[in-house]
Design a protein around this nucleic acid. Sequence first.
DNA 1: CACTCTAAGTTCAATGAACGAACTGCGTTG
DNA 2: CAACGCAGTTCGTTCATTGAACTTAGAGTG
Lengths: 176, 176
Amino acid sequence: MNHAAGNLVRMALGKDYVRQDCSLARALEVVGERWTLLIVRDALYGVRRFGHFLAHLEIPRAVLSARLQALVEAGVLEKRGGDYVITDTGRDLWPVVHALARWGDRNYSDQGPCRLFLHIPCGKRIDADGACPACGRVVPLEELEMHPGPGLDPARDDPISVALRTPHRLLEPIAV
Amino acid sequence: MNHAAGNLVRMALGKDYVRQDCSLARALEVVGERWTLLIVRDALYGVRRFGHFLAHLEIPRAVLSARLQALVEAGVLEKRGGDYVITDTGRDLWPVVHALARWGDRNYSDQGPCRLFLHIPCGKRIDADGACPACGRVVPLEELEMHPGPGLDPARDDPISVALRTPHRLLEPIAV
DNA sequence: CACTCTAAGTTCAATGAACGAACTGCGTTG
DNA sequence: CAACGCAGTTCGTTCATTGAACTTAGAGTG
């Protein structure tokens, strides 16, 4: 156990979820609130600054502030100077984020996936399980490169959306 | 695309999430609200009746009613008589539920996992990726048997919690 | 048929969270 | 010092959640 979920004061869902005899409930205490998983996703994509999350997610400032604090307290993010950097615990959420996004693709997207993830050594798209079809194994986050997919909305022209459309490694801080 | 997320009227998160150029946002429109993923989890465990969800989750009736309706509209559940049965789209969420629960186990649980999932033919616990260490492949939901784990709270004695403590296959309707 | 019991679902007032706009604090730059 | 941009707080409004009470529908019984 890396971090004490019980220490999270003022967690919205805490009181009710704690009763649930399942680790899923504990996980949802941390990443189950509105906006939280989208923040984690952006952090995995390399977003690190308050203003960048703000611009890209169009989230109210107060809520973003609260969520970032909660994620730092939970050990998912770490504050380094003015940057919010994802921790190992946070990186561990990649399979969840990826699986959920692929589920969204499969079931609720006309246009196909919004983003493609390539295994850098092999150049192949990873499959729904996060495995590379060429080398057969589940690919670690660091070996993935993100490319824009057909479902991506080209109309979004804020600097962060543009930066996230240019292919780059996951976790790599985005070029402003 | 199986189901039109756009048809979901009165979805709480819809208006804001739709803008997000990511399939994750679309997925969260469906399963991102409070309680929703716990309902899906229970449905995967074999819970089917309104009153059973109610007793096991200790969720307000009004919220449960709203969530079940939304999940039916989204094609995650299907209403068969008085039962809410998980669909193929819903079963597809198993990797997400499992990955998130394992993440909760690893990072926020003292006692170890609450539930163990065994690959029935092999009898081995599946790993964090959902693969069986014996046969090496990712195990389909239907071949999994759920057993209570060390982290499970033995104090919960409502009929559903008791039924979910006796080993049984996933998706198999629980014995009341 | 009336009577009752139960499970499913709605309504409602009170509470709490999210929202967006305005404001504060602060370190830089001109 | 003034002006600026970024980070974060405050605040009134709006919206969702909550728990309790209530309604509806169906099944079983005398």
